[in-house]
Design a protein around this nucleic acid. Structure first.
Lengths: 262, 262
DNA sequence: TCAGTTCTATTTGTATACAATCTATTCACG
DNA sequence: CGTGAATAGATTGTATACAAATAGAACTGA
């Protein structure tokens, strides 16, 4: 961060450079607007605003100690990404994610991620990709090896899951696809991060899918990779729906429960 | 436009209300920013800017006789939609669409539109939807009935094609899906509008697909609808690739050929 | 002549001021 | 007492002014 690397020409659309789901990693925001966007994004995804809460520009500006200009830019971006709803002359509000819409999103993820799996298989993994994938798979195995789910295992497995999915998307190397999937991940409860990694049995089966996906991709079997991912996503969708029905409205999110405005 | 309909509460995110591909229809832009966005979008999609041309804020502001503020908002939106590239402190430029990227986009469209077809079949068409679909199908039949392609038929068929695809997406009624597909349509050469509807034989086959898709959807056969649409998209992709290879770089776009900067 | 540096002009990013729109209260009238 | 219009306050949209960064020209020195 300190070493200003003179002229590291950013190759492609800078606003999309950051890793897929990881919005809280050491992101380098060159612009105030970008920095504000990141802050607001994580705040929303962590559920720090109530669903459908209005986001007033001046209030946010005060809170973050900037002018309205970068705030407006950030809100604009986030609404384009699908986190916020916008009505002209009336401002922005946190997009409500009801069960139905969540299902819609999973349908789209199913289509997109299965495409990613197929493309990854067709294009093939580099040695380093393959190595990293195996390492992550083993991380998952280790967490599961106890025969039950330890408390610290949950968060760990969430990270494993995220890294594996991201790896596949990266290998697919299709910018449009990557962008489209990111939009799905940005929806408050759609991210796998928000699955309550609770049931050992389910997680074991899910990780089994990961292993098989890896097999299929290494074998360059696009058809199988695609089918596996479709099945995998359907399983995740169903699992999340069960979790939601069980918890019933309450706090299905991992983070602090949504608190009413402000 | 004159009859200010008092308070027609815009239900959902207003920036996404306009019909899918039709960006030049009687769109009601309530805000200057929105109006500028529409103008710039169509200008770019019509190829009025050279590929990779820089879009300078002040220049555009002068041209459109507005301040930089709505211009910036518009550029922001268009870059989020994928039409422009953005580099902090260096501005926006028209995103280059090479053959490879075009292929990527079609892969995504294949995944998304086949999902749309399946969902449409599963959810079923309303009577009015069905009626309109049939009418549009007949419009296509009429154009093809001459046994060859008349000059005015090309544009007409492009419209028919667009209406049919949009109808399916509408019936699928999945907001996230709609948004994702729209992004694909917004890429300069990816829109079917830019296919040179040239070969009678190909168009006939393509329209045959439309008929079969309609059948499958009416029969509530999601699997068949999905397969048909996948095949259909693959065919479109291949056709466009051939067109592009034949025309080789020159003007594959329907509108006026891209002219250098300014 | 060429590499590197400094300086200037252009362009983008941010802050602020003003205009237009909407929300909610108040008040008049039936 | 309830309905609707007028009005005041708050909030968003647009324009402008200023700050920061970048790109390119001119210059220096080998």
């Amino acid at each position: 961060m300190t070493s200003s690397k003179t002229k590291t020409a950013r190759h492609n659309s800078a606003s999309k450079n950051r890793a897929l789901g990881l919005s809280r990693d050491g992101t380098e925001a060159v612009t105030l607007s970008q920095s504000v966007t990141e802050k607001l994004r994580t705040a929303i995804l962590e559920g720090r605003f109530a669903s459908e809460a209005r986001l007033q520009e001046e209030l946010l500006a005060e809170t973050l100690a900037v002018s309205r200009t970068p705030i407006r830019a950030a809100l604009h971006t986030l609404s384009n990404e699908g986190l916020l709803d916008y009505i002209p002359n009336r401002g922005y509000s946190v997009r409500k994610v009801d069960t139905e819409r969540l299902g819609d999103i999973f349908d789209v993820r199913e289509a997109l991620e299965s495409l990613a799996a197929r493309l990854a298989a067709e294009k093939g993994m580099s040695d380093s990709d393959q190595e990293e994938f195996m390492r992550t798979l083993k991380d998952g195995d280790r967490i599961l090896s106890k025969g039950k789910l330890l408390p610290e295992g949950r968060e760990g497995f969430s990270a494993v899951n995220e890294r594996l999915h991201e790896a596949i998307i990266r290998v697919a190397s299709n910018q449009m696809l990557t962008d489209a999937i990111r939009v799905c991940y940005n929806i408050p409860m759609s991210s796998d991060r928000n699955v309550l990694w609770r049931s050992y049995e389910w997680i074991r089966r899910s990780h089994d899918d990961h292993h098989r996906l890896f097999e299929a991709i290494c074998a360059r079997d696009g058809g199988r990779a695609e089918r596996l991912m479709r099945e995998h996503m359907l399983s995740v969708k169903q699992h999340m729906r069960e979790q939601l029905d069980a918890g019933e409205g309450a706090g299905a999110a991992a983070g602090p429960a949504p608190r009413p405005g402000r």
